Amino acid sequence: MLIIGHRGARGLEPENTLRALRRGMVCADLVEVDVRLTKDGIPVAIHDATVDRTTDGTGPVKGYTIEDFTRLDAGEGETIPTLLEVLDLVQGEKGLVVEIKESGTEAIVVSVIMDRMPERLFLVSFHPESVAMAKRLLPGAQAGLIYSGEIVDPVGLARSVQAEIILPRRDRVSRELVERAHNTGLLVVPWLLNTAGDIDEAIRIGVDGFASDDPCAARRYLQSEAATSPAQAK
């Protein structure tokens, strides 16, 4: 079962920083970052549309140049990394999940990734049009549709945009959904699973992986379950 380090290891380190990614890479199969563009069009790893929550700055991400970003403290003395810095960090070591936060930025994001393809790459988004465009631009990546709200037919929507993965919020996952997705060749990777109960339920219904804020705790739990239930190790 795949473990994805959510924003690196958000539960342990400042999210979307190189420090968080290094911590997540210790135990995760893939680490995840959110990507937005600066004022001068550089993809950087940040979740929110503003810098207020995760740095000592204020205002919209689009109001900052990349030079401005180097002066912001993202916690523990970390700065907000560029996507290029993230790719250099994971190169040859781990897989990477890139969440495209803004429609229309796909071509720039993909152009940065192309020369530094990680070991395994998921290009994911809440925006179906971004999923379709990312897959068109970079067929070698696995594309994924994220969702948190109710969708009548998430499997059909994912297939229509050439996704190979659906990433539902954990309360949107059921055995029926997993079976339908698997019958069409889709992987199911819910978020966020941070408790033993959530992970147990994910194992029970047969998901393919999950995102966690503490990937090492998740790994330890999976290993302990495999030791006591050999069938789950398969």
Rank of each mutant, 00 (worst) to 15 (best):
R220W: 05
V207P: 00
I203Y: 13
A231C: 14
I203T: 06
P230C: 10
Y221C: 14
R219A: 12
Y221Q: 08
Q232R: 15
G206Q: 01
A233V: 00
G206Y: 13
S224F: 00
F210L: 05
S212Y: 04
F210A: 00
V207K: 04
P215M: 03
R220L: 09
G206S: 02
A227H: 07
D214M: 07
S229I: 14
I205L: 15
P215Y: 06
A211K: 05
Y221V: 14
S224N: 06
Q232N: 13
I205R: 12
C216V: 12
S212I: 04
G206H: 08
A231Y: 12
D213S: 13
D208R: 12
D213I: 05
G209L: 03
F210H: 01
A231E: 14
I203P: 00
A211T: 11
S224V: 09
A226V: 04
Q232F: 14
A226H: 11
S212C: 03
S212F: 06
T228Q: 14
R204E: 12
A227R: 12
A217I: 06
R219T: 00
T228G: 06
Q223H: 09
V207L: 03
L222K: 05
A233H: 03
A231K: 15
P230E: 12
A231H: 13
R219N: 03
I205S: 01
A227D: 08
P230G: 08
F210T: 06
C216G: 01
A217M: 11
I205F: 10
D208M: 14
R219Q: 10
A218M: 09
P215W: 01
L222R: 01
I205E: 01
A211V: 05
Q223C: 03
G206A: 05
S224Y: 00
A218W: 01
Y221W: 11
A211F: 12
E225C: 04
C216D: 11
P230Q: 12
E225L: 14
A218F: 02
Y221L: 14
Q232M: 11
R204V: 00
A226K: 05
D214T: 08
D208H: 15
E225Q: 15
L222M: 12
Q223K: 00
I203H: 04
D213L: 08
G206V: 09
A233N: 04
D214L: 07
P230A: 11
A218S: 15
A226F: 14
P230W: 12
D214I: 09
S212W: 00
A233E: 08
R204T: 12
S229H: 15
A231W: 15
D208G: 13
G206T: 07
Q232A: 07
D208L: 11
D213F: 03
E225V: 14
F210W: 14
P230S: 08
F210G: 02
A217Y: 00
A226T: 09
S229V: 11
D214A: 07
R220T: 10
F210K: 04
L222C: 07
A211N: 08
A218H: 05
Q232V: 05
R219Y: 07
C216H: 01
P230I: 13
A211W: 04
A211D: 06
A226W: 15
Q223L: 06
A218N: 09
A231L: 15
A233T: 01
R220I: 05
F210P: 02
Q223G: 00
A233P: 01
A227M: 10
A226G: 13
